[in-house]
């Protein structure tokens, strides 16, 4: 099942290597001033090993999706490099980049909207095959489609149906089949289950877990739901205003978060337990995410951090090894005071 067409990376090289990636957006000019660029992703570096799942978490507006699109070169990075299977994607010609896209496939949030309403399931799944493997015969193509449909739990007689005939969960299976049919080495899933009901969400999460195990595919999993992320991740990347706050083994971060922002996020997740809820401490943040357009001298989280000092506002903490993971904080591991009721 493994893809032999791409050059195999050296044993020590990760499947995906991202270094110093920044994605800035130009903002409109007015007569009197030029607005600074919006810094959606700022100087992000990480590795993704073969068969590994790295989840990107953060609030809305933290740059999760922009980071993924920058990695996939769907948005041109302002700075930085991305290597997939040892090839630097930014240096490829448009034609080479197009050919390398079969190695990296995307699964979208809205399962129905991301499928063309005028094409049957078979046509939708055959699209990437027609683009990337035009030499396949019709029979070979149909065999591949039947095989991938079976592997995501779609029945053969569904191939002539249209997306609107499917429920959300089934439509998401079609989206996953379309991504898998190219046998990619990298799968990027952008909030793949957040539009689904819990009972269906579990089906799709189990499917993704099976795919990961059977195909050894690497996955970038983007989600705002920390319970879902906990279930699926090997490693975790906590993003805030486009910058990495904490990155490392997921289980270690969930057990002992070290960055104040990670602590805040985890303390806010509702637990399915009634006893003790009155005394369980939650940490509040002041207001919402600030605008990412101003270049901050200090730590991006300093404006909302409950324990920020003067130093945090003036000096930016570097991502530094701490307790078996990397943390960007001047005071990693600092204890936070929780609250359990609002002072009205």
């Amino acid at each position: 099942m493994s893809d032999q067409s791409s050059p195999s990376p050296a044993a020590s090289e990760p499947l995906l290597k991202v270094r110093g990636l920044s994605v800035h957006f130009k903002q409109g000019k007015s007569w009197f001033r030029t607005r600074p660029p919006l810094r959606a992703v700022e100087d992000v570096s990480f590795d993704l090993a073969e068969g590994e799942t790295l989840s990107i978490v953060g609030e809305s507006g933290s740059g999760k999706s922009t980071l993924a699109r920058g990695v996939l070169q769907l948005l041109k990075p302002t700075k930085g490099q991305v290597w997939l299977n040892g090839r630097e994607l930014g240096g490829l010609s448009p034609e080479e980049l197009r050919r390398s896209r079969k190695d990296m496939q995307l699964i979208f949030q809205d399962p129905i909207a991301s499928l063309s309403p005028r094409r049957t399931v078979e046509q939708i799944i055959s699209e990437p095959l027609l683009t990337h493997m035009p030499s396949l015969s019709g029979k070979e193509r149909r065999e591949k489609i039947a095989e991938v449909m079976a592997s995501v739990g779609l029945l053969p007689d569904m191939r002539n149906r249209y997306p609107h005939e499917f429920s959300g969960g089934q439509a998401q299976r079609i989206g996953i089949a379309r991504a898998l049919v190219m046998e990619p080495s990298l799968l990027v899933a952008d909030e793949p289950v957040s539009a689904l009901d819990v009972s269906i969400q579990a089906q799709v999460l189990n499917l993704l877990a099976d795919i990961k195990q059977e195909r050894q595919v690497s996955m970038l999993f983007i989600s705002h739901d920390l319970s879902v992320v906990h279930h699926i991740s090997d490693r975790l990347l906590v993003l805030y205003l486009g910058q990495i706050m904490e990155i490392g083994e997921a289980s270690a971060i969930y057990e002992r978060p070290q960055h104040p922002y990670t602590k805040v996020l985890l303390s806010a997740v509702p637990r399915m337990q009634v006893s003790g809820r009155e005394t369980r401490k939650r940490i509040y943040l002041k207001d919402d995410l600030p605008s990412p357009s101003s270049k901050l001298a200090g730590c991006p989280f300093a404006t909302r951090c409950p324990v920020a000092t003067a130093q945090c506002h003036t000096a930016k903490p570097a991502l530094t090894a701490y307790e078996g993971r990397e943390v960007a904080c001047h005071f990693p591991g600092i204890a936070l005071e929780g609250q359990n009721a609002v002072a009205a």
Binding site: E59, A268, P270, R282, Y284, D288, Q339, N340, A341, V342
Partner: peptide, 10 residues
């Protein structure tokens, strides 16, 4: 977001 949700529920 969860951080805001916790505060609204409280």
């Amino acid at each position: 977001d969860v951080t805001i949700q916790a505060q609204i529920l409280d």
